[in-house]
Amino acid sequence: MTPPLSHRTDRPAPATRHPRQPRIALLLLCLLLLCGCGADHRFVQKAEFRDSREIVITFAGPVDPAWAENRDHFSVYEKPDPDIPAQIDRVELGPDGRVLTLRTSEPISRDIPHKVVLEEIRSGGVSQGTAHLTVKKLYVGHLFSILIGAMIIQNFVFSKYLGLCVFFGTSRKKSTAVGMGVTFTIVIIAASMMSWFLHQFVLKPFRLDYLQIVVFIGLVSLTVQGVDTILRKVNPALFKAFGVYLVLVIANCIVIAVPLMLADNEYTLLESLMLAAGAGLGFLIALFLMSSVRERIEFADIPESFRGLPIAFVVAGLFALAFMGFSGMTIY
C-alpha cells in the first residue's frame, strides 16, 4: 500500500493544509475506500494487524526509543468496547525507529475494528500530538470476500438451494445457460441496488418493514420491464439474444432472496453491490457447469425413468457435494 501523499512529509504539516483541494481530497477518498487501514494521524503512515496478536504501526519518521519504551503511552481496544482495554504484552520498536509492534496478551479478533491510541508521540524530541488510529481489515478485502463468498463458497444454487426451477429449466444447452446467466446478473444487480435504496430510505425510516415482500417483488418486475424496454430500443440484436430470458428472471427466487437478505443483514451500499454481483455470477457459474454436464448426458445411456429431470437432479446433487468442499473457506 502506498501512503497517501499528504502523509509523506516528515515535518508536521498544519492540519488544514489542503482542505479544499479537490484532487487530493478525491485521492484520499479513493485511498480510504481502497484501504480501510488508512491512518488517521499525519505522523502515522499505516496501522495494520499482523499474526493473531500483533498490531504494527509505521510512522512517517523515526520516533524516540525512550517514548516507545513507556507502555503507558499505548492503549488498544476493540472499537465497539471502548471501556475494555486489551492487555499489551510487549512493545517493540524496529531498528530504524519507524516500525512499532504492539503485542497483546490475548489473540485479537481481526473481524472487529480496533482502536489504537498513541499518547504524545515524540520524534526527534518534538511532540507530534496524540494519535487515535483505527485498525481494521482491508475494506477491499472484505468486499472481495463477500463477492467470492456469494459466488462460490455460498453459491446460491449449490449451497443455498435457491433458484432451482429456472436453473433446471435453462441448463439444457450451454448457449441458453450463458444467456440466462448474463441477463440474470444484470437484472439482479439493478434490482438489488434499487431495493437497497428503497429499504434504507423509505421502508426502514417509516417502519414499513412488513411491506418488504410486496415492494421487492414489485421492484424486480419493474426492473425486468425496464431492462426489457431499454434493451429493445438501444440494442435490438442483444434483445433478440437475451430477451426471452428476461421473463424467466421473475420466476427465480434468488432475485427476491437477495434483496430480502440485504434488508435482514443491514448491508452497506458497496457490500450490497458485491453480494448481488456474487449471486448473479454464482448463478452463471452454476448454469455453465450444469449445462456442460447435461449436454453430455444427452448422449449417455440412462435408464428410461431417469431421463430428463431426475438425472439432472442427481447431477446437481453431486455438484452440491463438491461445492460443500468450499464451505468454511475464508478468503481474507
Binding site: 449449490f158 438451494y161 435408464p303 425413468s305 431417469f306 429431470l309 431426475p310 438425472i311 439432472a312 437432479f313 442427481v314 446437481a316 446433487g317 452440491a320 457435494l321 460443500m324
Partner: peptide, 12 residues
C-alpha cells in the same frame, strides 16, 4: 445436498 438426490430418485 442429499435433497437433490432424493428428488431425483423420487421423480424416477
Amino acid at each position: 445436498a442429499a435433497g437433490f438426490f432424493m428428488i431425483g430418485f423420487m421423480m424416477a
